[in-house]
Design a protein around this nucleic acid. Structure first.
Lengths: 202, 202
DNA sequence: ACGTTACGGTAACGCATGTTACGAACCAGG
DNA sequence: CCTGGTTCGTAACATGCGTTACCGTAACGT
């Protein structure tokens, strides 16, 4: 019953190839042939690992979520205070570095694809709501005195700001520089109260 | 020299068909055949009116900017105070009504198209910077005591929030309802100072 | 009224894509 | 060493895309 070739290793290699193509050529350039060429194999092998192209798309979308989620976990765990964690999570949700501007471009591509693909749309909604929940929890940790409704609305607003910075950075990095993103996020975070504002690293 | 058929009307009708297809089937479904079918003609007529598919997209994009710009002009002129004008412009930049959620989807589609098309990207940047300038002027009118740099950063932050609400509403209208958008925008506007907050229409 | 010209539809081309059928290579067991 | 099943590469297929060449047709100028 066990496969002779290692299938999970194949999937991982194909995942790496998928992300490489996605970062370089964007979502419209994510073809089965491009992935196969990047992985050093053929389309037949790709379609032996993934049933459809939609399966590949779903896998790539999960890859993006996994990437951002793990990074959010890391920066959240590394922060000392809840307010610092909130600030770090939001800053890393936006796209300050050039390396993650391409990630923002991929994100926009999936967003546009989700507008016509119900499966991708459901994935997108789920991931986004999970992110909203994360931010809401952090807001509640920063302001335990706030009622839940206020925490929720603050979280949705902060997420909207972060995603807006994301999309705008993807298309106009000059106007929305890393400094501009930080200023905008800090201004929004200042609304949580003066005690919530601390800039550990400047 | 004058064309026998009204060409500008044709161009506008084809652009409207482009919006319709883009909102309904997304960017991958935006084909010349789909546009022609939606406009009630054939691809030959489309390519007699526009040289390329890119020309069609550029015209549709320009028309979208023109339409949103006119609406912004209208709500800005109809407002009594600068703060009311700022609030109205930002609220109409987001997509509260279901009618304009479709427009938000079109906007996201053009954004994704701009990621792969330098011409559309340059258009998008220019239009967005014009919108930032508009918001910056309104912020300066609301807070004449603020230095220019603060007005600029506040404007970019407000625009990012509005566009973020736009994109998130396009994919998840349930989470980002019209009320949630208003709450988020009002919270951000409250940062401009207590005098700037006035809700004329509830 | 007639020739000219622009306009729009038809159909095809070249191309890239997702998908599938089939054959070769590889590893087990007898 | 042969046999059987699994895995992957090869090559083709069908489809849809943007684009183009071609042709009928309707409107204008004279």
């Amino acid at each position: 019953m066990a496969s002779r070739r290692d299938r999970v290793d194949q999937r991982q290699r194909l995942s790496a190839a998928t992300w490489s193509v996605l970062a370089e050529r964007g979502l419209p350039g994510l073809t089965l042939r491009a992935v196969a060429e990047r992985a050093g194999c053929t389309t037949g092998m790709v379609l032996h690992t993934f049933a459809d192209k939609q399966a590949l798309l779903v896998h790539a979308r999960e890859l993006l979520h996994q990437r951002t989620g793990q990074r959010a976990d890391a920066v959240q765990a590394a922060a000392d205070t809840p307010s610092a964690a909130l600030r770090a999570v939001l800053l890393h949700a936006a796209a300050p570095t050039t390396e993650r501007q391409e990630e923002a471009r991929v994100w926009v591509g999936f967003l546009a694809a989700a507008l016509a693909d119900p499966v991708l749309a459901e994935l997108h909604r789920g991931y986004n709501r999970r992110f909203v929940d994360r931010v809401r929890g952090l807001v509640a940790a920063v302001r335990p005195d706030w009622p839940a409704a206020d925490c929720a609305s603050a979280a949705t607003g902060l997420v909207a700001l972060a995603e807006g910075l994301n999309t705008l950075t993807a298309i106009d990095p000059a106007t929305y520089s890393a400094a501009a993103q930080r200023v905008a996020l800090d201004a929004a975070l200042a609304r949580l109260g003066p005690t919530a504002v601390d800039h550990p690293s400047g």
